[in-house]
Each structure stands twice: as C-alpha cells, then as structure tokens.
Design a protein around this nucleic acid. Structure first.
Lengths: 257, 257
DNA sequence: CTCGCCTACTCGTCTAGACGAGTAGGTAAC
DNA sequence: GTTACCTACTCGTCTAGACGAGTAGGCGAG
C-alpha cells in the first residue's frame, strides 16, 4: 500500500514517509478516524530507525492531519462538525425569540449545546479591553467568563467585559442573565444596540487554551474580539473569544458601496 | 538566567525546558528576533541529551514562538507587521480612486506592496467554486491567480474565478486589468456590485502553501472564500484566498438589527 | 584591499537502544 | 459471571553518537 523510499531524492526520509501517508489519506486509502500503521510497522516497512518514523508522524500531527493517542495508535484526525457563524447572528430578531446566540445557532444545526465553567466577577479589565470600552485604566467591569460545548466537546471560551456602571446590580451581574442573554438585558436597560465591531486573528493556541479546549496538536484557534455599541455610540460590552478553528467557519457580508 | 530542572516534577524534561524559554521570552529576557541559547549551550546547562533539547525547541516552534535558521541558531520569532483588513475594504469609494484593494490598503499603512506570480488562464473551476458561481460543473471561467507581497515578503495568494461569459475578451482576461482592478471593470460591464459574502476558515498550511508563503512552522493560515454579487443577485466572481495568519487582523462590522 | 579558503559553530537528519506508561484483550482465580 | 492480573502492543521520553550542511568570521594569498 505504501510506496518505497526514493534513495536518489534529496528530500529527507522522514518527509518522504510523511508524504506517503498524507497521500494515502488524501486518496482515501486511510479514512477519517482510521488507524495509521504503527511505528513498529513503519520501521519495518521502510527499514529505518524509530526516530525517523516518529519525525514523520510528528510532522503530520503538526499539520493537523493526524493525531496520536497514547497506547492506542496514530489516527487520521477526524474533522469535527463545523458550526457556521453568520454575520447576522446577533440580530435582534434572533434575540427576541429568547435565546442567546450560541444556543440558538447550535440547536438549529441539530447539535446539543451546553455552557460550562461559568464565572461572573467584578474586576478591572486588561488594558486593551479598557481602551475598547473607552474606560480609564483600573475602572471596574463585570466580567463574565464561560466555556461553550458542542455535543459535550469544548469548542469556545469567551470572556465578556461590561462597564460596572451599566451592569452592576442587574441580571447581567448574575450567573443566569435570563432569556435572550445579556444583550436582551442591555436593551431593557436602555442601551439599544446599534452595531458590533468584530476583530479576528488566527494563531496557535497557548498551552492553557490547548488544555481548556482539549485541542489536538496542529489545530489553530480563532481569536475574536467583539465590541458592542449602543445607539449613542457608547461601547457597552467587549467579548474576548477563543475558538477551536477546526470547529468553525465564520461568514460575513460586506457592503460594496 | 534559566532555572534548573525540577526532578520531582512529573512534567517531561523537554516541556520544562520549553516552559523556561517561553517564560524568558514572555518576561522580555529574550526579545523579538533575539537568539535563543544554542542546542549545545542548553545541553550543557540542563545536562541532557541533544534530542531532549531539540524536542523543547521543536515545541516552541510548533507554537509559533520561535523559529530555527539553519546554521545560525534559533530565534524568538519576530512578529511581522500586521495588515488590518476592514469590512469596507471593497467599498466603491476606494475603488474610484483607481487602486485595487490590496495596493491601496497596503500603501496606506506605509508599506511597499507588490504583486507576483500572476497568471491568467481559462479553465473549469473546482466543484465548490462552480457551485458558488451557480455554474454547471465544467463551465469555463477566467482564472486569475496571483501572490501579494508586503515589503517583499509574501503574505497572500489569491485565485479569482469569473464566469467566462462575463470576463472573456475583456480586460479582466488580461494580466493588467487596469485602474481600480477587476471590480471596476465588472461595474463598467454593467455588473454593478451589490455585496460580498466572505467565508473564513483557519487551519495549518499545506506543504505547498507553506512554501509559496514562506511560512515559519507554527503559523496558521486564513482561508477566505469571497463571493461577489451584482445588483441582479448574480454571483460574478469568487475569490479564494490563503493568507499568512500572522500578518493579518480581519475586522468586520455586524448589524444589531 | 579583495578574494577564496579554512575552521568553528550552528541546526538537520538518522541510527540504535533503553525504559516508562497507557490500552486492550485473554486468562485464571474467585 | 465477575474480577484481577498478565501480556502484548502502542506511543512517550530520554540517551549517546554519527555525519551532513549552512553560516560567519578569520586569515592568508594574490
């Protein structure tokens, strides 16, 4: 099934082995979730040392193509179900049905959403967040942190910051903010939402993020920072979100004029 | 400068070494572009084998924190200058100044943009592109492929597909489409642009992408697929773009209503 | 002064072996 | 039948060494 090494090639042996396995996956010889040949089998097939085989497998893992499981083997990394996030996902019409954005969308796609590790505290935000909220450094905010899961698998951690003068003493400062989520509460408090600015970066996860999101190696994260503005032009919330990039497709509509 | 190993810890030695170096970088002891201790120096400092040191350095590279340069050393990966892409970047008012989107924006941020590896061909698009263009499989399109560079560094490769019945025989089918780029030409041809749909994914690069974009290991890519619609609701262009994720921040405005 | 070579240092690749730890299936004791 | 153990197989970590190849600086020949 796997070809032999090309001794004339100047491509490193471990790269050639990785190429062979990658092709086999692409061809469909090895399907999603299927087990790759064990290190021992590859050593025998190619007649190389274990270190060389491991380099090849390491490469595939860093590409996000394969994932090793201790004691079991190396497997073709299954692609998790993808959530599509549309740019109208925070539109009022969705909110008025009484569901927060994540839950509504996730259920629509036929999956079981849940929230986890919810904490609500009061603290001064990081400097860049304070700037976005147009607050002086050290000004108190209500900080809502939570983890979102999809069919039990963590996919996203988000931290919201709201100026304390708006949120303290309201349902926003409580673990359960009630139907429609914090955006519904903000509007009830007289802060009619006008628009959101969303900034997107992609990078490799920190060790901490890798743990909390249970990420396989070779999976980057989306880092979203969203600022909500009310109709007075005041920023009323900043939400800092880290998402497993293999679980999301983001989608936006851009104006042509 | 670097601490010693904790023999009592159950954390693997190579992870501890990577932790130490990561902390040193975070603390600022090692600055952007600075050289990490050589493998030999780390072997001596920690009293471990070279393989162990290399595992630690490999880990940092896969995190995008460091980058090795053959024969020179391992360096704290400098963060390249970032381009911010706003959601109005294809607005008509920009186009009317006679510059295509990339060039205009790049020069505004004080950098030297250039385009490279430009090819224009006629071919049937991949199936998913054909679907977005609402074309039957096998229908011909004009395919424009190019690479964008920023101060001489490649940052983005893009492939545009336009229905042949619109584009063939126009300036869109020529290497230089003229002032304002292909969107200006489309509008002149009577296809007034209405809006764009942009879909964003993030993933690790393929070997091919890694080469063309000269990516360091540990740098993911943004994969954008943008569809342009005219005022008749007809899709008139699909642009498939792969961007070095460390060189971009994407920014969008979302409606609240 | 310039060019080319030599050398020391750097990372890249590969080998051969050791021990540890997680998994899974069979088997023997209860 | 259930439980506990044993064993074979898997990947994870670490060692010690070899050779290759790219880089950069010094030094001598021209």
């Amino acid at each position: 099934m796997l070809p032999s090494l090309d001794p004339g090639s100047d491509r490193a042996v471990f790269r050639q082995i990785a190429d062979h396995l990658r092709e086999a996956i692409k061809r469909g010889d090895l399907r999603e979730g299927e087990k790759l040949p064990s290190e021992a089998a590859l050593m025998k097939h190619y007649g190389v040392a274990r270190g060389t085989v491991r380099q090849a497998l390491q490469l595939l893992q860093s590409e996000g193509v394969a994932a090793a499981e201790h004691g079991r083997g190396v497997f073709v990394r299954p692609r998790p179900p993808v959530r599509r996030l549309a740019s109208d996902r925070f539109a009022r019409r969705h909110r008025e049905r009484g569901q927060a954005a994540f839950m509504a969308e996730s259920e629509a796609s036929g999956r079981r959403p849940s929230v986890d590790m919810l904490t609500v505290t009061q603290a001064a935000p990081p400097l860049d967040i304070a700037e976005r909220l147009k607050l002086d450094e050290g000004t108190a905010t209500v900080v809502r942190r939570r983890r979102y899961l999809h069919d039990g698998h963590p996919v996203e951690v988000a931290t919201s910051y709201l100026p304390a003068d708006i949120a303290t003493g309201t349902k926003i400062g409580e673990p359960d903010p009630g139907p429609g989520g914090i955006y519904a509460r903000l509007e009830e408090l007289g802060h009619r939402l006008d628009h959101f600015d969303e900034q997107i970066e992609a990078r490799m996860p920190t060790a901490e993020e890798s743990r909390v999101l249970a990420l396989a190696s070779g999976v980057p994260v989306f880092h979203l920072i969203r600022t909500a503005y009310d109709t007075d032009g005041r920023p009323v919330e900043v939400c800092d979100t880290v998402m497993a990039a293999d679980s999301f497709v983001l989608s936006y509509t851009l104006p042509a004029s």
